[in-house]
Every structure is written in C-alpha cells, then in structure tokens.
Design a binder for these strands. Structure first.
Lengths: 211, 211
DNA sequence: CCCTTGAGAGTACGAGTGTTCACTGACTTA
DNA sequence: TAAGTCAGTGAACACTCGTACTCTCAAGGG
C-alpha cells in the first residue's frame, strides 16, 4: 500500500535514532565541540561515511538532539501549573518532577546544561530558543492565575524566565549530586523557589519605581 | 643579589601568562575539551614540547585559568555588600558592576560560563569550589546586616547561592546580548534581583514549615 | 519483473593530534 | 670563571580526524 511507512524508511529512522542515542551517551563525559564524527559512527556501528546520510555535520546532530530532548518536555509545564492547590505544594511537586526526570534521563539533562553555554553556536541558539519558549509558556500559565492580576506582561515574562533558569540550575545541581545526594539539593531548591514565590507575592506591594 | 626575581624566572612567568592568555583567546569560540595543546602553543609562539614546562596538561591549564579568573573577583563581593544605602540601590550597583566587568573582560566570563558545566571534570570542580566560596562570602556579609536577624545559617547560604547563581546567569546573558543590547538584559536582571530581595524581606513573615 | 533509488561499506588521502627524545644555549650559582 | 640548571627547540612516533571517492545490494515504484 501507499501509506505504509516502508521497511526502508523505518530502518533509516532507526539508524538516525541510534546515532542520536550513541552521541548522547558519548556526551556524558565530553562536550559537543570535541565530539568526533567517527567516534559517533563507531559507537553506532556504522561507517563514518554513512553519517552524512542522516546529518550534514556533528553540530546539526546536536541541534536535533536539543529539539528531541527539550521538545518532549513542553507538555510538562502546563501539567504542573494546571494543578490546583497551594502554591507551596505546587513548587514541591515541580522539584520532585524534575528530580524524577533527571534520575530517569540524566544524559539528556547533562547535555542541555553542558551545551547551553557550550562552544557550538547553533546548538546554543537552539537551546536558548527552547528555553525562551518555556519561559513564555510559564508566563502564559501564570497570567491565568488570580495572583497575577495587575502584573505587567514584561514582569510576568521576567518571572517565567526566573523559574525556568532555576529549573535548569536545579537539574544541573541534581546531576552533580547524583542519586545519593540529591535529597539535600532538592531541599535547597524548594526553599529557593519558595523565596522567589514569596517575592512574587509581594511584587505589587509598593508601586514600581525606577527603571 | 639573592632576592632579585631573576631574568630567567621572570621570563618563565611571562611565558606562562602568555599561554594562559592565548588559551583564553582561543576559548572564546570553543570549549576546553576541544582545545588542543598544539593549538595553544602555536598561538603563544612556542614549541608544543615547551608547554610541559608550565602545565602538565590542558585541563591543568584550565584549572589555573579558573583560579586566575575567579580568584581576582573575591574582593569585589565585600566591596559591594559593604556599601551602605538602600538595598535597591545596592542591587543596581551590583548589576552595573557586573556589566562593566563583562564589558572589560568578556573572555574571562565566557570561559567560566562555558566550563561551569563543561566536559572537563577538574575544571568543573575548580569553578564549583570558587562559586561555593563566593556564596559563603555573600552569606557571611548578609549575616552582618540587621535584616538577616533570625535567619538560619542554612537559609543564609541558600540566599547567598541564589545571588551568586544569578550573577553568573546575568553575566552569561550580558555576554550573549553584547554591548549593544545589554541595557535590556541589565534591566531585567535588576528586576529579578529586586524580586528575590523582596522575597528575602518577607522570608520570616510566617514560620517555616515542612522541609 | 525490471529499473531506479539510496543506506551503508570500503578505501584512501592529507592534515592534525599528544607525547617522547636528545639537543642547545642563555641564565644562575658556587 | 667554570659547572650546572632548565626553558625552549626540532624531529619523529603512532595515532585520530573529516571528507571524497567508488561500490554493493536490498527495497519499492512503474
């Protein structure tokens, strides 16, 4: 039939995914700018030349990896913020959710943390674009809540970015701590978020002044 | 005389510094894990072999670079926090100070931002150690202020770390924005810090609960 | 059923890598 | 001033790297 995916196309996708997986594994202990094309293909089990059938370069593979890693997390934000309940409880849930994700897929988070400021321009840009998107999603979610009444759009985006940046910091700290010591990290992360939420609660107490 | 530095020792220090400077320059567009020993010596103007007279490896050079870069900033924190005046004014001064430093030595800050989560373990550790030291210095400075009365030591450290992490984020954002667009970045950074300070102000409003 | 397509193999090339070695020659010190 | 120290040299080692070729051969459309 015409609509079947096709054995061939299917196999190509599997190889492509194998390349991405192998690269992610290798990136646990080095950064993208030092990752060799041959190294990736060797770990995948294909010839160096075959790499070009899937990506035009290693940076291009990096960008694909960013989109696959962060793209799958977009639903998460809505899910957290849609939860009803005390903001305190919600923050605790958020931290716990991050901890679980970091435990389950450490390599993905390490990759993002590492390449966010890494040496490969296109990958940095791809990550920055995704994180900006996250910040906007958080800002949009916050806007629907009663506590955000009277907030300027710019300030909502500022707060969204603040939360997103902290999620990244937290993920990175959890990675560094490892499964053994991430309890303490999560504890501090909760307090940090609580302090920020407290600041947001009193943001409109006095009229904004200055710049 | 016996106490003169000596032409020889002096020249050695100059070459060592030339290696550090050359490396820093090369690291503006790549990360340490992809920086070659030959590349550095070529930019310095010495033979690859001579590198070993100064550092035992490229990662070791990276660690030296961290200490030189962050070590020189330790005085800064005390200077800012010792300032009297409104906390609002003080935060603005802090952001302005960072902006000036980033403008003057962009390569240093880019290096730290890049290698904080980079692929070279010893360098990551060196940066983490320095930043932890900064957080402790900030916490100690905060402890001397009347607003911090009643704060637990752990929470002071949490707040210190929060400030330090934000300084790093701000520096990185200033770099990405460039001299042209760093006004907007500084503006948002001020608001972020203001919100955090506001949260700290109300931290003791209600008794701490939970973990 | 044959013919086109395309993922992957295999080979080869020049360039770059970290590291070792014996060496030179200017500085230091006794 | 003679002996020793040591920063830097230059050649050679055994790699790895990205990329350009040609080639194979199974899948899929006419």
């Amino acid at each position: 039939m015409s609509h079947t995916v096709g054995i061939r196309q299917n196999q190509k996708l599997r190889t492509r995914q194998a390349l991405l997986d192998a690269a992610l594994g290798l990136l646990e202990e080095q950064s993208l700018s030092s990752l060799g094309l041959r190294e990736v293909t060797r770990a995948t089990g294909i010839t160096p030349t075959a790499f070009y059938r899937h990506f035009e370069s290693v940076p291009a593979l990096g960008v694909a990896l960013v989109e696959q890693t962060l793209g799958s997390l977009h639903g998460m934000i809505g899910a957290i913020l849609a939860e009803t309940g005390d903001s305190e409880v919600r923050l605790d849930r958020s931290v716990e959710l991050i901890r679980r994700h970091v435990r389950e897929q450490p390599a993905h988070f390490r990759f993002i943390a590492r390449e966010q400021h890494g040496g490969v321009g296109p990958v940095r840009d791809a990550i920055a674009a995704q994180l900006r998107l996250f910040a906007e999603e958080v800002a949009a979610a916050l806007a629907t809540e009663p506590e955000s009444e009277g907030w300027a759009g710019e300030d909502l985006l500022m707060l969204g970015g603040l939360y997103v940046d902290h999620m990244v910091i937290t993920a990175s700290a959890l990675l560094d701590a490892g499964p053994a010591g991430d309890g303490q990290v999560a504890r501090v992360a909760r307090r940090r978020l609580r302090l920020i939420a407290l600041g947001a609660l009193h943001w409109l107490d006095e009229p904004a002044q200055g710049t």
